[in-house]
Design a protein around this nucleic acid. Structure first.
Lengths: 234, 234, 234, 234
DNA sequence: GATGAATGAGCTTTCATTCAT
DNA sequence: CATGAATGAAAGCTCATTCAT
């Protein structure tokens, strides 16, 4: 079991094997319950080599977080065409997100559960990634506010927030936070509920976020585009 | 440091002290990093007494989860007046939720992070509580669908889901999941962002969930009630 | 489970209950694995009371050994009629011995296994008892040497041990030791082999010891008396 | 104290050192009272190394039992020339047995006392060895019955057990049991009594077993061979 | 470059034993 | 007389980490 014991590989390759093994072990056992012995065995190398390349358990875990955070952000970025309207961008981004987390459950466990659970410096690593995503979503919300119905927004907002022509920054931050939080939660739900595809999860969340429960009740859901999110997603 | 060393307390009292110390320690250090030594010291008793009363680290952790899950559910229940319309019930529930989690961050860490991160049987304990809350939210969504605009719902929905006069069950489940997930996420955000009150967090989420981003953009937010959520919250 | 919780018993009775529980627990679990908690619970009293009466685990174990050693020696003594010839005395003694050990396996485990296994001062206690029995057997051997065939003994022995008209003391001691050891071993074997009665065990050993394998081979076994060992045994 | 601290030994060597230390410690302190700390120190290694190689206290103890059981059986086997008559084989086997147990008192304590006292799976291990020995002795008894005086055996036995031309199986089993038990007991006695050599112990037992007390009384002891049991013993 | 050998430190758990009532 | 409350001390076991080859 584990990687086939191939000797004399270049360092970069060996490191990736170790990170693979580590992500899998950390994701399944948890950070503390995972033992360096198990990781080394799964990677098909001896323990001292792990230490030589990755320094310590903390550094190894941090390396896992960084690699997987980058992979997730890259996957989402690659899934979004930036020339589309905001709601379509969000739709595509969610699709890519659910696809990636569904295909890499251990990585998602490391990012979403393990890293946040074991304090600094791990939580900070994942927070950085999360803020990137939240910033992206915030952009989309603001873009939507501008592009979608500028004049309606103009007057209606003026009535509501007379002294502040913009949506208050904190309010938007909260909205983005809520949206991302809902997405994270749905990722776990979709993984655990058999038969829920990434597309369905994305559709559910788009409905929820874009139309709102009020409009949903009134039979006015957000309309997903006819064509699939695109083969370039995942 | 720790509780004042008062000797010879009745068992029930000591047990609560131990649970207090355990929740605090588990919440801050994490389940695995927390040592029984530290918990015992914080509780002001010797380690054997902790084992005599709570049996094992696992049992102690489970007892913490159960106590705090019940406390949270009770707090939310106590904050909701069941004779109000659905959106008001949700508003009050969210207020109570954010208030309780804000006031008990260690307990919230135990429930939201630690218990979910360390597998069975802990995850199961908190899943049970979560399902209770998701069920409650599901009820509210369905109630809203019925009470709010029955006729609009009637014809408009019929157009959308011709073969199914109701919102598909899984769709509602997904919506409730997303709502609860967003709330959980906002709880952490509100705790971490200075100056965000439980009320504000609840308002943000109500807007997000009830009006939807689309309506928000159009300047049609959900309107929170004039009077505060009431002194009976928390 | 355990003794019925009857309050206010005279000390002597309570002590016997405790010793009963202790013998059973020590016999089944072993000295070290037996916990004072278990003994106290089985005796139906609280732990401090055990300490009040018996002082310590060591003292409790010693008390068990003494009581059961005395009980065993008394049983053997009661089973032997001292006016009979030596071989009949041995036969009766063995019968009483196998009967008692068969009926009190926990006590026998305490004496034969536990006490010897856990060093001083316990081994010493049981050694004292054992020496008493060995001395008794030694007497029987010497008596047999005198009574059975005095003249044959006289000349034949003189030829063999010319400078010592008696069987050398150490030789007799070794014989007694061997006989007692064989008896102890057969006690465990008889307990473990279904269908072996105390009588049969005693007969086997009498044959072995009295006639010797050589005579047995020649078809000249020792003849057990017709009448049963008697109801006065045990 | 303990072994000289030599670093970096091959695993097989270290394991034997550990077993040496364990046998000594278990033999002197008893299984439960022996601590892994003490064993490790006596072996001149750290505790984790003991666990790395021997897994657990139970496994370590089992390994001791197995090694010493094999050593004892091997010693007895090596001491017996299978081409001699039965009584001579027994005589040589007893000599080897008393020699080995006398030279390895801790090993004998482990096998005879500790292993039997602490239940399964330890008792089973030593029972297996014991059965091997009992079977060997049983063979010798039957062989003696056949070879020694066939015709005397023939008619005399027929008179005693008319319906069964053989000594009943259970009777022989009991005799072997008694003989082995006597030997075990004499081993402890010989160890504890200064000045008793293995040869003397063996002679005492041969007399007891082969001639029987009856013949001994009559001045007809079993005659040990003139030449010593042979330099190939131990 | 790669590894078998080795350990310091710390964890959970248990037990005999004793106060204070 | 009897006990619920409480603990010091130690045991088995595991792990991240490092030499020496």
């Amino acid at each position: 079991m584990g990687a086939v014991k191939t000797k004399r590989m270049p360092r970069a390759v060996r490191e990736q094997q170790m990170l693979d093994a580590a992500v899998r072990t950390f994701g399944q056992r948890g950070y503390m319950a995972a033992s360096m012995d198990e990781i080394a065995e799964l990677a098909g190398v001896s323990k001292p080599l792990v230490y030589l390349y990755l320094n310590s358990k903390e550094d190894l875990f941090t390396a896992c977080i960084r690699r997987e955070a980058k992979a997730l952000v890259d996957a989402v970025r690659a899934g979004v065409r930036r020339d589309l309207p905001a709601d379509r961008q969000l739709w595509e981004g969610l699709g890519a997100f659910f696809t990636h987390t569904g295909e890499n459950p251990d990585a998602w466990s490391v990012l979403h559960l393990q890293a946040r659970t074991h304090g600094e410096p791990f939580a900070g690593e994942v927070t950085a990634m999360r803020e990137e995503i939240v910033a992206f979503v915030t952009q989309l919300i603001l873009a939507a506010a501008r592009e979608a119905r500028p004049q309606a927004l103009g007057c209606a907002r003026a009535a509501r927030y007379p002294h502040d022509p913009e949506l208050p920054e904190r309010e938007v931050a909260g909205l983005a936070e809520a949206l991302v939080g809902a997405a994270e939660s749905l990722a776990a739900w979709a993984n655990a509920t058999p038969g829920v595809t990434p597309r369905q999860a994305a559709a559910t969340l788009m409905n929820f976020a874009w139309a709102g429960l009020g409009d949903l009740m009134a039979g006015r859901p957000w309309a997903p585009p006819e064509e699939p999110p695109g083969p370039h997603v995942g």
